[in-house]
């Protein structure tokens, strides 16, 4: 089981969007909205036992997570996507729950994060 560290890699994130705290906050908020919607779709895919959709939404979550610097979330999503591509994934695969837990943890971290303090910590 991978360690579920929800933190955002602020070094990566600021390399992408710069160090303006408002911009960083805006991007994190955008990511949170996107990840929440994809997590809901992933839950729905599991309920509907739709393996194609599980792979598709794992792919989306992976891409968005890696782009924002949500490294662990991205790795778990990638592992789930790759597993789904290699074999007929079972819709109750524990990887789905693992990913949903990681997303929740990441979103919780974003809600609580003090952006200015995180950015100062980079100096």
């Amino acid at each position: 089981m991978m360690h579920q560290d929800p933190r955002i890699d602020f070094v990566w994130l600021t390399a992408m969007v710069g160090r303006n705290p408002d911009t960083v906050a805006e991007m994190l908020e955008e990511f949170a909205g996107s990840a929440s919607r994809d997590a809901a779709a992933l839950r729905a895919a599991r309920t509907a036992r739709n393996a194609d959709d599980i792979q598709y939404f794992a792919h989306r979550i992976k891409g968005a997570s890696k782009l924002i610097g949500a490294v662990v979330c991205g790795e778990i999503a990638e592992a789930l996507e790759e597993k789904a591509m290699r074999e007929d994934i079972l819709c109750d695969d524990p990887g789905v729950e693992h990913l949903l837990t990681a997303i929740d943890a990441t979103l919780g971290f974003i809600r609580e994060a003090n952006i200015e303090s995180e950015l100062k910590g980079l100096d």
Binding site: M16, V17, G18, T23, M27, E30, F31, G33, S34, R60, G63, A64, L67, I68
Partner: peptide, 15 residues
């Protein structure tokens, strides 16, 4: 890209 968040962050690189 079908994710508006991804489009936004890519555009931010070129701001």
């Amino acid at each position: 890209d079908d994710q508006s968040f991804v489009r936004k962050i890519v555009k931010s690189v070129f701001q």
